[in-house]
Amino acid sequence: MNSPPGVTRATLVKDLRLEWRSKDAINSMLFFALLVVVIFSFSFDPTAEESRRIAGGLVWVAFLFAAVVALNQTWARELRNQVLDAYRVSPARANSLFLAKVTGNFIFVSVLEALMTPLFVVFYNLRAIGPAYQLLFVAVLGTWALVVNGTFFAAMSIRTRSREIMLPLLLFPITIPALLAMVEATSSILTGEFSARFWIVLLAVYDVVFTTGCLLFFEIVLHGE
């Protein structure tokens, strides 16, 4: 229980159980993403060929916005009852907590993506011309990139005055290369015009760099005096 994996598991199980009982994050995310999809469909009335070209952008922008909704709740929950303070004085490693939160968010956002992707396919008449199995890599790596940075910056923004608005302000500029890679990879696969390999490699590099960076700095942010 006191070992780092034990702490991670306990925190993750607690978060999943809380979410399973309340379904706060997942419901608000789902409905938000649905609204974004519907508004996008009203804003653009594309033909199948055009929609294939812009769908990569639309999908990821919708997921990004929806993920921010969930990420904001990650740490807010721990502020009530001073859980975060309790964690600070406990001897448990800060990174165990961080990994648990990242994994939890990864699961939530993946569930969201799994549920929303069929909707996108239906609304935009999507069909991948390129190798569709690569979309799985893009989804996993892209979601990890969003979630690892998002969880980190949510921990940062929880310390600021206007919490909810601060997260996207910090997250979006730093995530630009990852977002570009996700969008371009998805578009390349859907249109089949280019190879998505470079973008997938870039996403993998981004994930490695930022996972390392966040693990390196998380303790400082958690204790930040």
Partner: peptide, 18 residues
Amino acid sequence: FSSSGQTPVMAAVLAALG
């Protein structure tokens, strides 16, 4: 926007990540 005591640490971490 961050509360005064923690501003320098948070900002320094953000600069490093940037």
